[in-house]
């Protein structure tokens, strides 16, 4: 398989060293990682999956603590679904200990309100581009449905 050399700035930041140290402090905690993370981190993960899969795993699995290597927004639902469990955000390799996606966090409740009130900004697209982009998406949805991944 030929790979395009791109990466997600959030998932590339995690520090395997800091996570290993955390694992020593919390020996029973499991490491949950998103597949956009780098290979050395995936190698020490107990479970690898999409955000939905990580969320489901943290609910059905019987461990009591997890070190979560993906964007911290997911911890909100994990904590809501499992109030008795402990979720620790995996530490990144930078000085400010934050692994928020700066783009995701541009949206605020106030912007949501104004956007709904004035119906702006709106996403528009050339129809020819839309039709060309729809074809591979439809294939994805059909394969996912056949595989039972979506209802």
């Amino acid at each position: 398989m030929l790979l395009w050399n791109g990466a997600c700035q959030v998932h590339e930041l995690f520090s395997v060293e800091k996570i290993t140290r955390l694992k020593m402090r919390y020996p029973h905690a499991k490491v949950l990682a998103h597949p956009e993370c780098e290979e050395p981190l995936l190698a020490i993960a107990d479970y690898i999956g999409s955000t939905t899969q990580l969320l489901r795993y943290s609910h059905t699995d019987d461990a009591q603590a997890y070190i979560v290597a993906t964007e911290t927004g997911i911890l909100h639902q994990m904590q809501k679904d499992n109030p008795e469990k402990t979720f620790i955000p995996a530490p990144p390799n930078n000085n400010c200990a934050c692994n928020d996606c700066p783009y995701m966090k541009l949206n605020t409740l106030e912007k949501v309100y104004n956007t709904l009130l004035y119906e702006l900004p709106e996403i528009t697209m050339e129809e020819s581009l839309r039709i060309a982009a729809k074809k591979p998406l439809d294939r994805m949805l059909a394969i996912s449905k056949a595989a039972g991944l979506i209802g």
């Binding site: 791109g6 990466a7 997600c8 700035q9 959030v10 956009e36 783009y103 995701m104 541009l106 949206n107 605020t108 912007k111 949501v112 104004n114 956007t115 709904l116 119906e119 702006l120 900004p121 709106e122 996403i123 528009t124 697209m125 129809e127 839309r130 982009a133 729809k134 998406l137």
Partner: peptide
């Protein structure tokens, strides 16, 4: 993606600068 799948609906995004490094 939502717009591609829903051409007749109005799709709103609170901040157009919410991009993606990928």
């Amino acid at each position: 993606t939502a717009k591609i799948l829903n051409p007749t609906k109005k799709v709103l995004l609170p901040d157009l600068k919410a991009g993606c490094s990928l």
